[in-house]
Amino acid sequence: MIHSRHESKTKFLDAAMHVIRVKGYSATRIEDVCEEAGLTKGSFFHHFRSKRI
């Protein structure tokens, strides 16, 4: 199976949209997004510097 280099980034973005819709932006934590995406916090910071884009 071939994986896109950006598959984990896409998982984070999809997870963030879901969590933000449920909890609201200010209540959403990076840990919530990581849990929803099924990925680690280290992986999150590989793609993003912070919660703010």
Rank of each mutant, 00 (worst) to 15 (best):
G38M: 03
T10K: 13
R29V: 03
R29N: 08
R49P: 10
F12E: 00
S8R: 12
E7S: 06
T28Y: 11
S50N: 09
E36L: 01
K51E: 10
A37S: 00
E36H: 03
I53W: 11
T10R: 14
K41Y: 03
S8A: 05
R5W: 04
K11T: 00
E35R: 11
K23V: 13
D32F: 00
S8P: 05
S8H: 11
F44Q: 03
R52P: 05
S50H: 11
V19T: 04
S8M: 06
G24M: 10
G24A: 12
D14H: 06
C34E: 01
F44G: 01
H6W: 13
E36S: 05
M1C: 09
S8L: 13
D14I: 09
R29A: 04
I20M: 11
V19P: 09
K23S: 11
H18I: 13
A16W: 05
V33Q: 04
G24D: 00
E7F: 00
T40C: 09
T28N: 10
R49F: 06
H47V: 13
A27Y: 05
I20C: 11
R52K: 14
D14F: 05
C34D: 01
G42V: 06
H3A: 12
F44L: 08
C34T: 07
I30L: 04
F12D: 01
V22L: 15
A16P: 07
Y25R: 15
H6A: 12
I20N: 08
S26H: 15
C34H: 01
K41Q: 04
D32H: 03
H47L: 13
R49Q: 12
T40R: 13
A37Y: 01
E36D: 07
H18G: 08
V33L: 06
S43G: 08
H18F: 12
D32R: 03
I30A: 04
V19H: 01
A16E: 08
E31Q: 14
R21T: 14
C34W: 00
G42M: 09
M17W: 01
S4F: 06
C34M: 01
K41T: 01
K41D: 02
A27G: 11
A37M: 05
A16F: 07
R21S: 13
S8W: 05
H47F: 15
E35D: 07
H47Q: 02
H18E: 13
E7I: 08
H6S: 10
H46K: 09
S50I: 01
K9W: 06
H3M: 15
H47D: 06
I2W: 04
K9P: 03
A15V: 04
L39W: 00
L39N: 00
V33R: 01
L39P: 00
L39K: 02
R29G: 07
S8Y: 04
K11W: 02
H46G: 09
I2K: 14
F12W: 00
F48K: 06
S26W: 15
R5I: 07
T10M: 11
M1E: 10
V19L: 08
F48N: 03
K9E: 07
R49N: 14
L13C: 04
E7R: 03
I2L: 11
T40S: 12
T28Q: 05
R21D: 14
C34I: 02
S4D: 14
T28P: 11
R29S: 13
D14S: 05
A37D: 00
T10L: 12
I20G: 07
M1I: 00
R29K: 14
V33W: 02
I20V: 09
T28D: 11
S43K: 12
S50G: 09
K11Q: 01
